[in-house]
Amino acid sequence: SIYWISQADCQADDKFIFPVVLSGFSSDVSVEVWAGESGVDCSNVDNRTTATQKCWKVSATYNPSQGFTPEIVVPARTILARDLTNAAASATPGADVCTNSTYSDSRNGVPIVLSFLPIQGVSSSIAGIAFTKVRIDLGGPDAPAKLELGVGENRLSLSWGQVTTGDITGYQFFCDPPPG
């Protein structure tokens, strides 16, 4: 199953909650979740370093002790914000990311990989696990263009151009009669 992030999810400030089991963690190792577009390896520290950053941090930094079972929270808006400017971005994005961000026009499901990484020290990491089932789809399809109305006997016939900018489930047409 795919975990979609829709415009309504963003407006509602939806959050993913991942219960995880951690083992073998020493006190100097923490857990962070980083997001990247499909094909980018967020376990590579170069992709998490400001100058060359391709991944962005989407969770708090968790400092588990041995045997601790945390629930890791990843706000959808933090994924959508795609904040590459600060490796430790902590601000909670507002609703403006729903309509004014890298992904606010996405219509076809941008695949996002969430990497759960054990972080030790400033710049190192070892391979964590990847959650690959998040997709972003904030925008609906465009309205059809080239709508034409033809006259038939006792009916009107509509024709229109196919819409290709999104996942189409159907078309609905409404008549807007003049006042009176």
Binding site: D13, P19, V21, I126, F131
Partner: peptide, 15 residues
């Protein structure tokens, strides 16, 4: 070594 275990069926959403 550190291991992280995530069970997909346990993933929840806040809504």
């Amino acid at each position: 070594a550190q291991t992280i275990t995530l069970t997909e069926t346990s993933v929840r959403r806040s809504e």
